[in-house]
Structure formats: structure tokens, C-alpha cells
Design a protein around this nucleic acid. Structure first.
Lengths: 206, 206
DNA sequence: CGGACGCTTGAGGGTCTTCAAGGAATGTGG
DNA sequence: CCACATTCCTTGAAGACCCTCAAGCGTCCG
């Protein structure tokens, strides 16, 4: 029997907040989680979304030291997560070699994603940001051509993720619709009509 | 004797380029290294600078799989680095427990930095970005009050790091000078005159 | 001495933001 | 069951901020 074994949890709101003294590791089973940082004046940047099957943490991985969450995590949709308490991590790593690789991979992916996001935020236009976002969401959902994809989060979450305003999100989506690149069905369902053109718009940021 | 033991290297230009099939780990001894990503049309985003004592990698850490560099690393100044080849990493980790912690810490710091950078790029104004950059450089150099700090990289590197243009870097620095916040000595030497005000301008992004 | 490079500054324009208003959908309490 | 509030989305008008293009200056180096 593994000490401090993982527990399962259902939630609809905050999992942890920036500054919380936790170093736990989370594995998302179902739902969508939003990881964000907020400035004192209210400006917010979403540093990532987590989707089912992905691992995320409050503060990177630290086995030994006491830790403080560097961002806030809350549920965008009702969520089911597996929590691996920081205290048991060391033993868990010894007991389950596969878990080591999962952790390393999760870290690698976080870093890769962060690097991509920096290029996006530093060097890409609003249209490019949204096209990239839609293609990413399509990929996460394994969407077939002609099948619409679902945006589980509201516009202002997309905005805070892409470093623009929710009005700009709305305007750009309308423009993509007018240009026949996408079709908007009831707001949160979007069908991509021209994959080739959209992919070409963001080549180099794969 | 450790297999594939670390080797020392001096360089003045590229260490590795995006796409190179390497998974090596580097420890910077002296100099400054620039980690960047470039889009097909030439737009560039610097995802980080490395300073003496810091560890950086071409593609996060991966012990097993063959890897491809996700960014380009080149020397901003003449550089001395220790190279830990990917092949020997596994053995090195077993042999030197301290190295494991160094690696974990390096990863954690990369992630933390990346999250900060996302807030910076997504939500901060040009002035805030530069103030933050100057304070960070001062901290890296352990600058005492009233002692000028040194910017080893040219303006366009600062620009590509902060997601703005080099003209804007120049203009904002001039504005900070006119506002008595800094003093510019021969371009690359900058003295911070009002730490309190500058710190207040970027509070919340610590 | 001429050219290359980096830094600065100006003028004008484009992109995105801010502020504002209206509509659609959903939930709530009378 | 229906006002009413709330939330989210969309669109418009005006303007701020930063970019682009351009020119001038200093330094370094061949």
C-alpha cells in the first residue's frame, strides 16, 4: 500500500490559488481547467488550459521544499481530477517508474507550450492567435474535418489566454466567418471550413 | 570514471539551433546566452537569456527519447559552458544525486520564468516591460544602489525578448531618462535612480 | 576614408483597446 | 408563468499605443 495515496476529487470552482502553500500534482480526468495569473490591478493572463489526460501542478515539481502555488487553477467546466499530494510524491516516484516518465513528459510539455505561447504573445497578430487557438482546440478534441469543435470556455477566457480583449476575440471570429474560414454555430460550436488556409496562416508555430 | 563525461566548451556564436537533434544539457560558466525561436517570415521571439550559473537545455529534459531542439541558443558574449551529453545523463543522475536536484530546480525556474514572461508579453505595456527588464538585470548582477548595471545585449535583443521593436526600446529608455528614473551612460551602462518608483510600476510581477 | 552596425528620434499610420450600447440566453423570485 | 436581473456575445465609434519607414549620428573596423 502506497503511503499518502492519490485521492479523487470533483470540483466546479477553484482547485488552488496563487500563493497557496501547496506542491501537489494533479491529473485531470474529465473537464477543463484554467491556469491563470492575476496582477494587482486586475489584469489577468491565462498561462494554460488543462484537458483530460493532462498533468498539471501548482508550482512546477518540487519533491523536497515547501512550495507556493505560482498560479491559480479553477474549473472551466465541472471537473474530475486525481490529486497526488506532494508529501507522497517521493515514494510514489520510487514505487512507480512509469510515473517518473509521466512527470518528466508533463514538465517537458509545459515548457514547450510555454515557449510557443511566448512566440504567440510576443510576435503574432490577433488573427494569427485565434487561428492558432482554433487549430489547437481542434487537435485536442481530435476533430474530424467538417465536424464542429467545441469551445468550453467563454470569450474572455480565450482573450486572457491569447493576450487580447474579449471584444477583439469576437471581432476576429466574425471576420474569419465573413472570410468563409469558419462557421459559428451557437457561439461555442465552431466548424473549420478551410483547414489548409488556416494552417498556412500559423505555419512556423507548430 | 563516468561514461560520456561532461566536456567544457568555449564559443562565440551558435551552441545549437532549433531543429537540431540534440538533447544535451548545458551549464553556463561565463558569458550570456540567448534562447530564441524564429518564425518563417523572420519574426523572432527570445524565450530567455541564460546567465552564469544557470542550466539550460535544447528541449526540456528527456532521458530516453531522441530529441529535437525547440529553440536556438547562441552566445551574446563570449561564453564558457559545461556540456552534459544526453547519452550520459541517466548515469550521471544515478551517480550524482545533487545533480538531480539541480536539474529539477532548473526546470522549475524555466517554468516559473516562462509564466512570468507570458504575463509580461500578454498584459504589460512597453514601459512596464522595460522597467521589469532593468530590475531583473540589476538583480542578476547583484547591483548595489547607485552602481550602474550593464546590458550585455544589443537593443534589438532586448526588443525581441520583450515583444516590442528596438525603436520602442530606445524611445522608452529615453522617456525613463527624461523622467529621472534612470541614467544612461554610454548606451549599455544604465544606472537606476529611483528604485522605489520603478519597483512600484511592476509590482505583482515579482 | 568609406562602409557596416547599432542607437536615437521623428512623422505617419495601423492595430488593438476602451467605452458604450444592444441583443440573446439563462436563471430567479414573485 | 412571466417580469427582471445577470451573464455572455456582438458591434460601433473614437482614440491610445506601438509599429513602420526614414533619416541622422557615433563608433568601430577593414
Amino acid at each position: 500500500m502506497v503511503p499518502n495515496e492519490a485521492s479523487c476529487l470533483e470540483a466546479r470552482a477553484a482547485l488552488f490559488a496563487e500563493g497557496d502553500p501547496t506542491g501537489d500534482v494533479y491529473e485531470l480526468v474529465a473537464g477543463v481547467v484554467r491556469l491563470s495569473k492575476v496582477l494587482p490591478d486586475g489584469r489577468r493572463q491565462i498561462v494554460g488550459f488543462a484537458f483530460p489526460g493532462e498533468i498539471f501542478t501548482s508550482s512546477g515539481f518540487a519533491l523536497s521544499k515547501q512550495n507556493v502555488a505560482t498560479c491559480t487553477a479553477d474549473a472551466v467546466t465541472p471537473v474530475r481530477v486525481v490529486v497526488y499530494p506532494q508529501k507522497g510524491l517521493h515514494d510514489l516516484l520510487l514505487a512507480q517508474p512509469d510515473f517518473v516518465h509521466s512527470m518528466f513528459d508533463a514538465l517537458r510539455h509545459s515548457l514547450l507550450h510555454a515557449q510557443q505561447q511566448m512566440v504567440l504573445l510576443g510576435r503574432m497578430s490577433a488573427v494569427e492567435r485565434l487561428v492558432w487557438f482554433l487549430l489547437m482546440m481542434a487537435e485536442k478534441q481530435n476533430v474530424e474535418h467538417n465536424v464542429p469543435l467545441h469551445l468550453p470556455m467563454p470569450r474572455y477566457d480565450i482573450a486572457d489566454y491569447l493576450g487580447i480583449t474579449h471584444e477583439t476575440v469576437s471581432r476576429v471570429l466574425s471576420r474569419l466567418r465573413k472570410n468563409q474560414l469558419i462557421e459559428i454555430q451557437e457561439g461555442s460550436m465552431i466548424r473549420i471550413r478551410d483547414w489548409a488556409v488556416m494552417r498556412r496562416m500559423v505555419e512556423g508555430l507548430c
